[in-house]
Simulated scan of single mutants.
Amino acid sequence: MATTQFNLHRNPFAQLILTSQAGEVFEGVSPVRAFPIQSPAGCISLVTTDGREVAWIDSLDDLPEGVRQLVLEELGGREFMPEIQAITGVSSFAVPCTWTVSTDRGVTAFVLKGDEDIRRIGQASLLITDNHGIQYLIRDMFTIDKHSRKILDRFL
């Protein structure tokens, strides 16, 4: 499936307005990633407020720069999934315990309630959910530093 042809801009209320190639106008569209972990830069649907898909994006690289920036801004405001780059420490190897991690959004600490809050996504990715329901992503557990990998091995 190819990227749908459309134009995108914001109205005075900061809502995204999509104009299709046929001239149809859709107010308040939202981008939704089909595969947010495995394919974050592709397979994005633009949907109306009632959930109807009005455009499809195969790859963000297919879009003009201005439209790509609008889609990325909107996704950034809707999605919050920090990516763990290193695990600097844990309070205990028994749960619940407090993890101190370095993420793409800065250093933070969170409480891991149980081992079941660490889920495998595919072959190498992990999704860790803290006690507040915030999800942290480890994109590839085999490429993180040795210290972080040792800590992970204790919980997997």
Rank of each mutant, 00 (worst) to 15 (best):
H132L: 15
K113I: 02
G77K: 13
V111A: 01
F155T: 07
L75T: 08
Y136F: 15
G23P: 03
G89Y: 07
A41V: 11
E116Q: 13
G133I: 08
D58A: 10
Y136G: 06
T100M: 05
L63S: 00
I84D: 06
H132W: 12
G28I: 03
I57E: 07
Q135N: 10
T49L: 14
T143K: 06
R10N: 09
L127M: 14
I121H: 09
T100P: 03
Q69D: 12
H147S: 13
T3E: 08
V71P: 09
S148G: 05
M1S: 10
A124V: 06
V101S: 03
A94S: 15
S148Q: 02
I87E: 01
F13S: 14
G76R: 13
I57A: 05
S45Y: 10
R120H: 07
Q123D: 15
V32M: 11
R154K: 15
F6V: 07
I57R: 10
G133H: 02
T129R: 12
F142E: 12
F6K: 14
G77W: 05
K150T: 06
G76P: 05
L18Q: 11
W56V: 01
Y136P: 05
A41S: 14
G51N: 07
A34F: 08
V29Q: 07
P96I: 08
A55Y: 07
L126D: 10
T88R: 14
G106H: 08
L152T: 00
T103D: 04
G42C: 04
L126Y: 01
L75A: 11
I144W: 04
T4A: 05
D153H: 06
R78H: 11
G51F: 00
G133K: 04
L18Y: 02
Y136T: 08
E24M: 11
I138M: 01
D153F: 13
L72A: 04
T4H: 10
N7A: 13
L46Q: 08
H147L: 12
C43D: 15
L152S: 02
A22Y: 03
S102A: 10
Q21D: 15
A109H: 08
V32R: 08
A41G: 12
M141E: 10
G77Y: 03
L152V: 04
S125G: 09
A34G: 12
Q123N: 12
K113Y: 00
G122E: 03
G23Y: 03
D153T: 06
D104Q: 04
L46H: 10
E116M: 13
W99Y: 06
R139Y: 01
N7L: 11
K146A: 12
D58W: 01
K150D: 07
S45F: 10
S92H: 09
L112P: 00
T49W: 05
E116H: 15
A124P: 00
C97N: 14
T48A: 09
G66Y: 03
E24V: 05
L126N: 04
H9R: 13
V90N: 08
H147Q: 14
I121N: 04
T48L: 05
L127R: 14
D153A: 13
T48N: 07
Q5D: 10
Q135C: 11
H9D: 14
